[in-house]
Computed example of a mutant assay.
Amino acid sequence: MQVLRSLAVACSLAAGLVSSQTSNTQCVKGLKIFVSRGTGEPLVDALNKDTTLISETGLGNNTRGLGETGKLLMPVFDKIPDSNYTAILYTASNGRRGTNESNYFESVFNGTAMVRKAMTDYATACPSGKMAWIGYSQGAQIISNSLCGMPVIWAQFMPNPSIPEMISFSQPLPANVTKNVIATLLLGDPSHKNGTNYNYGSHNLTGDGVFYRGDTSACEALGKRIRSYCDAGDVYCDVGPAYSDAHVRYVKDRKEELVNYIVEQWNNGGETGEVSKTKTTTRSGASPSTTEDASSKAHGLSSTSILAIIMSVVLVVLI
């Protein structure tokens, strides 16, 4: 029975995955989950005979572009009927020597562009459709870039970048696009910043991410609709003296918690818990902090952003 159920779900999800990467967006009655894998995770798991992943997702051979986070999908689908997923099919590369892969910075820029397009396309085609976003490692960074805004220094990897395009990418996606994102999971995000109201994970973090984010106000404004998990010892999201296998253990150690978060957000209609000028509530693994009105800070360019754009233009000219 389990095999038949998994096969049926896999067949129905296959159409959603294929169509979602074209210009035709299919709306679903349930929850649309977008997944972006981490650096080095293969694009075509099934063709690479990753039988462990295939069996653990319960999705048959339909595991293209999922990575480790694919293991969260079936438990969510069991509790939220009429749902499916889309994998962001970006390179997730690190430009290792002796390969033709794009470097990490190009991969992040291109992945961010794909996330922004996918989120905008679904919000436009399905104005009442609910979305959840799950990203691991580099895949988490391209999601947070879209929801929080991409630091403009990365815009040098745009093809023929212009200042208007750089300004656009430096800003978080507008509320009319993100309003129906009911849940976001960032796992081991290299742009993690400690002390924000959406941090979860270890209480004993020793540092920020490798590419930590300077302005987190747009993501903080999402309130309960976003969680960033970073555990101590993860050298990508928690730069510090100690190394452990923390970076690869998020799904293994927290699978039930991660699934429950998405399901709870669906059941409560995507509760926002948006921040205000008052002190934020301490959460599991989060440090209490006092924030300004994040919604007002999420819009417009600061003088620092303008300077960064000018520096990016200079870099483009010099490179």
Results as ranks from 00 to 15, higher is better:
residue 214 G to W: 05
residue 249 R to L: 15
residue 96 R to M: 07
residue 11 C to R: 11
residue 209 G to R: 08
residue 37 R to H: 00
residue 98 G to C: 08
residue 276 S to N: 13
residue 294 A to F: 10
residue 254 R to A: 12
residue 4 L to D: 00
residue 168 S to N: 09
residue 170 S to I: 00
residue 220 E to Y: 01
residue 25 T to F: 07
residue 210 V to I: 09
residue 29 K to H: 11
residue 38 G to F: 07
residue 7 L to R: 02
residue 6 S to Q: 14
residue 54 I to G: 04
residue 132 A to F: 00
residue 140 A to R: 07
residue 294 A to L: 11
residue 170 S to G: 15
residue 21 Q to N: 08
residue 73 L to R: 13
residue 104 Y to A: 06
residue 309 I to Y: 07
residue 299 H to F: 12
residue 205 L to Y: 12
residue 317 V to M: 14
residue 67 G to R: 04
residue 93 S to C: 11
residue 203 H to S: 13
residue 45 D to Q: 07
residue 90 Y to C: 12
residue 144 S to D: 10
residue 13 L to I: 02
residue 253 D to H: 03
residue 152 V to R: 02
residue 100 N to S: 07
residue 48 N to C: 15
residue 42 P to G: 14
residue 53 L to A: 15
residue 256 E to G: 02
residue 75 P to E: 04
residue 6 S to I: 11
residue 195 G to W: 04
residue 86 T to W: 13
residue 286 A to I: 08
residue 21 Q to S: 04
residue 75 P to N: 06
residue 219 C to E: 08
residue 123 A to R: 08
residue 149 G to H: 10
residue 273 G to Y: 15
residue 148 C to S: 14
residue 253 D to M: 05
residue 83 S to H: 12
residue 171 Q to H: 13
residue 129 G to W: 00
residue 243 Y to F: 15
residue 189 D to E: 03
residue 169 F to C: 05
residue 220 E to S: 06
residue 184 T to W: 04
residue 127 P to R: 10
residue 199 N to Y: 05
residue 51 T to D: 15
residue 315 L to H: 08
residue 20 S to C: 03
residue 65 G to I: 05
residue 186 L to S: 01
residue 31 L to V: 03
residue 182 I to S: 15
residue 34 F to L: 13
residue 74 M to Y: 15
residue 116 R to F: 00
residue 3 V to E: 01
residue 160 N to K: 10
residue 206 T to K: 14
residue 145 N to W: 00
residue 245 D to L: 15
residue 99 T to D: 04
residue 43 L to I: 10
residue 76 V to G: 12
residue 46 A to L: 05
residue 291 T to A: 12
residue 301 L to N: 09
residue 140 A to M: 11
residue 80 I to M: 09
residue 166 M to P: 02
residue 235 V to Y: 06
residue 128 S to I: 07
residue 89 L to S: 01
residue 28 V to N: 08
residue 97 R to D: 13
residue 248 V to G: 01
residue 138 Q to C: 03
residue 118 A to L: 01
residue 207 G to E: 09
residue 3 V to S: 00
residue 92 A to N: 10
residue 137 S to T: 00
residue 81 P to R: 05
residue 236 Y to M: 01
residue 142 I to F: 00
residue 311 M to H: 04
residue 244 S to I: 04
residue 291 T to N: 13
residue 178 T to N: 14
residue 249 R to T: 13
residue 100 N to R: 06
residue 149 G to A: 09
residue 293 D to F: 12
residue 47 L to W: 07
residue 222 L to C: 03
residue 143 I to M: 12
residue 165 E to Q: 02
residue 282 T to V: 13
residue 285 G to I: 08
residue 165 E to Y: 00
residue 243 Y to V: 10
residue 22 T to A: 01
residue 154 W to G: 06
residue 183 A to C: 15
residue 147 L to N: 13
residue 216 T to S: 15
residue 277 K to Q: 13
residue 45 D to H: 09
residue 42 P to M: 08
residue 281 T to D: 10
residue 215 D to G: 10
residue 53 L to H: 12
residue 173 L to M: 13
residue 272 T to V: 13
residue 170 S to H: 06
residue 230 C to Q: 03
residue 190 P to I: 01
residue 297 K to G: 09
residue 187 L to V: 11
residue 222 L to Y: 03
residue 298 A to E: 12
residue 67 G to V: 05
residue 234 D to V: 03
residue 3 V to Y: 03
residue 52 T to C: 01
residue 142 I to K: 03
residue 257 E to R: 09
residue 5 R to L: 05
residue 168 S to F: 09
residue 114 M to H: 10
residue 13 L to S: 09
residue 208 D to T: 00
residue 244 S to L: 08
residue 16 G to S: 05
residue 83 S to C: 14
